[in-house]
Computed example of a mutant assay.
Amino acid sequence: MFQRWVFVLFISVFVFSHNATAGNNFEIVTLGDRGGIQDGNLTAFLLKASKDKNYVTLDAGTLVNGLIVAEQKGTFEHVKVPDSSPYNKVGYLLKERVKGYFISHAHLDHVAGMIIASPDDSGKSIYGLASVNQALSSSYFNWVSWPNFGDRGDGFQLKKYKYNDMPPKKWLDVKGTSLRVKAFPLSHSGIESTAFLFSNEDAAMVYLGDTGPDKVEKSDSLNQVWTSLVPYIQAGNLKGIMIEVSFTNAVKDTMLFGHLTPDWLITELKQLERKAGGKGSLEDLKIVISHVKYSLKKGEDPKVVIKRQLKEKNDLGVEFIFPVQGEGLIL
């Protein structure tokens, strides 16, 4: 049994590291796969282009703990710490290989890891819409909630982090990587959240922060994101969509507070399907489900229920993927 486990682990690491360098793809490492209250496992992902060695984060609810879990699972087996480095692998990854934070919105479960890690972090850019960066500056890095590690805001500015205000719907080069990115505003129960569209030469993927359905939010935000994805889908270049499903279908629209359920995600994806060319146009597209909320109630884990509810309604032919903390995947 032990030998078989070692063999499976070896094959998993080999496939992950091999695929990460094969083709024009995106490598994802899940630092946190939950939304809400499960501290230590809150929404955060590492992203890099297949040809790059450096990462950025997609939100940062959990950071150091996510890196520790990933290292323990062997996900970073292919990463070699230089002999000259004073850091262990977690320190090396955080300080040398993570080149920036993409923050979709300033809710605590999306930024806590970055804030807590900031005293020992290296200098980086925080990429976000102007409203998001303003919230980070005024609410956290202000010498009341936490020292001001930013380059703006109240009190003495330690200037470890540089706020990079992203103009909506305009391409931006990501420093230290080969990625380009475009930000789209999303509606999240009265605040501005963000979808980040990344391109890696001809390949693309999109990460959406917390968002409710357009009909409930009385918004056109998701519709605009879907429209932007159509050319990539039609060219066969969209590698995947990372999107939240926070609640099961049992939660009423009035209690969603800017989140999605399985039924609402299917509804939104059908809008995308119609735009992209009709039935079958999303066949085999990878949809990575994030931000499932942990529940303190007895009964089935909401993640299990959401998996089942998405499977029952999936007449789109898409592949739903549920990431696990510490594990890697290729888009």
Rank of each mutant, 00 (worst) to 15 (best):
D52H: 04
S193L: 15
G40F: 08
F196H: 08
A44D: 10
E268K: 10
L316K: 08
I126F: 04
E27H: 01
K169L: 08
H78G: 15
V79M: 13
V144W: 12
D315Q: 05
D39M: 11
G91T: 04
V90A: 07
F257S: 08
F26I: 03
I28F: 07
H259M: 03
F198Q: 05
E192L: 00
T254E: 13
G32Y: 01
F156W: 03
D39I: 10
M255Q: 08
K48Y: 01
P213W: 06
K293A: 10
T261P: 04
Y127D: 07
N133I: 06
S187E: 08
V90D: 04
M205I: 11
Y140I: 06
F257W: 14
Y161I: 04
L31S: 13
N41E: 12
L265T: 02
T211S: 10
G40H: 09
N54R: 06
P119S: 02
L296F: 11
Y55E: 02
K303A: 14
S131R: 11
G36P: 05
S118P: 03
S137V: 14
G278E: 09
V288M: 07
L186Q: 05
N200H: 15
Q224W: 01
L42A: 02
F2G: 08
R34S: 11
S131A: 14
G61T: 02
S178E: 13
S131M: 13
V251N: 02
G150R: 13
G155A: 05
D109L: 01
D202H: 11
F76V: 05
T62D: 12
I37L: 10
W264K: 12
F10L: 14
V230N: 14
N249L: 15
D52Q: 06
S138R: 14
H78K: 08
L238S: 13
S189P: 00
A204L: 01
F320V: 05
Q3V: 06
N65H: 12
A276H: 13
K99M: 13
E319R: 11
V144P: 00
I28E: 05
S193F: 13
D154M: 11
F26D: 02
K175F: 04
V69M: 03
P82Y: 10
H107P: 00
G23W: 08
V90W: 04
E319V: 14
T267R: 12
K51Y: 05
D220L: 05
R308E: 13
D301F: 12
L136S: 03
Y294L: 07
A106M: 03
H78I: 00
D253M: 05
E192G: 01
G66F: 15
I289T: 01
A235P: 01
V206H: 04
K279P: 08
P82N: 12
G123K: 13
D165Y: 11
F320R: 11
Q325C: 10
V81L: 12
I266M: 09
T254I: 15
G299P: 06
N200S: 08
